[in-house]
């Protein structure tokens, strides 16, 4: 599989790069936990994805790049999660989100072969309406009663008054398992509250240019039309750091080197990360990540 990926990108003139796993800081995403590594009086951070480092390369003029490497996320363990996993991440200067989605589909079809027949695309709004029966921007009370009708216990305690928690819960429980099977399914145009590092749609600021790709309800990847506006990026990081602080989580230093690179100018581009262990799992017809890893950490479920 790795050889196939390298051939795919070699033919398309995408350069393989290798960025560090240990960094002086890490993406402050409020819901992605990281490992910290003490080193004398200093503290390093195991990277949760190579995103920020690769964007620094893009800003330095690397052109299109890809990387196959390990990523680490603390506390993620289950049938489809391991604290250490393999990510394929790539960036395409000049690509719209649609063009990148086409490339993702082409690669996944090479890797998954007969495991998938065809491609289906929903907007987040369409998927939500079809499988939850509500528009995603329905009032919280409607989302609440939907969760209750679906018999999801403890939803109130889990989600409180946070719209994005209610959306995530309903999406995980009601949408993902019902997406068409044995196909590549793209869900695109996420609500702005789930922007992460994606750009808002110029024609609709309620929605961000972000997609996720699923096979049999398993999320394989997450892609963005990348945010290049340094001020907006700084605001999002500050917001994330404040939220981490409020949630009582470790607050990493602001990544000034990354912001400086954005300030110097990152080309307009789209980028995506694919979980390769999950791709291999689906390709081989397995049901647990641990079935395809050489020496998995013990699962908790």
């Amino acid at each position: 599989m790795l050889a196939r990926i390298r051939r795919f990108f070699a033919r398309r003139g995408v350069l393989e790069v290798d960025t560090p796993l240990l960094g002086a800081t890490v993406n402050p995403d409020p819901y992605v936990e990281f490992f910290t590594v003490p080193d004398g009086g200093r503290r390093h951070y195991l990277q949760t994805s190579p995103e920020l480092a690769m964007k620094r390369l893009l800003a330095a003029g690397s052109g299109p790049i890809y990387q196959i490497g390990k990523a680490f996320r603390r506390g993620e363990a289950g049938r489809l999660h391991q604290p250490e996993f393999t990510l394929l991440e790539w960036y395409r200067p000049g690509f719209t989100l649609d063009r990148l989605m086409d490339e993702v589909a082409a690669l996944l079809q090479v890797l998954l072969g007969e495991r998938v027949a065809g491609v289906t695309t929903f907007t987040y709004g369409e998927a939500f309406r079809e499988f939850v029966g509500l528009p995603w921007d329905a009032p919280l009370t409607a989302l609440r009663s939907k969760a209750a009708a679906l018999g999801i216990p403890d939803a109130e305690r889990l989600c409180g008054d946070e719209q994005r928690h209610w959306l995530d819960l309903l999406f995980s429980v009601a949408v993902q398992p019902r997406l068409p099977a044995s196909k590549l399914v793209f869900v695109r145009d996420y609500p702005a509250c789930m922007a992460a590092l994606a750009r808002c749609r110029p024609d609709d600021p309620e929605v961000v240019e972000r997609f996720e790709v699923f096979v049999d309800g398993v999320e394989l990847g997450n892609g963005y039309r990348e945010l290049t506006d340094v001020e907006e990026q700084r605001r999002r990081f500050q917001h994330d750091l404040r939220l981490r602080c409020r949630l009582g989580r470790v607050v990493p230093p602001l990544d000034r080197a990354f912001l400086a690179a954005l300030e110097a100018g990152m080309p307009e581009c789209s980028g995506v990360a694919i979980g390769l262990d999950r791709v291999l799992m689906l390709k081989l017809g397995c049901h647990r990540l641990s079935d395809v890893l050489t020496f998995p950490l013990q699962e908790s479920s």
Binding site: D29, Y31, V32, G75, E76, A77, G78, R79, L80, H81, I152, P153, D154, A155, L158, R164, H165, L167, D168, L169, F171, S172, V173, M194, A196, E212, E219, N222, S300, S301
Partner: peptide
Amino acid sequence: NEFVKPGKGQAFNRVKFRNLKTGRVLERTF
């Protein structure tokens, strides 16, 4: 015990228990 992690969202666990006194099965989310 099923660990669920929406793309960029809050992770949760869906758990099925059996009450050892009554034998009843119940589901909770954490």
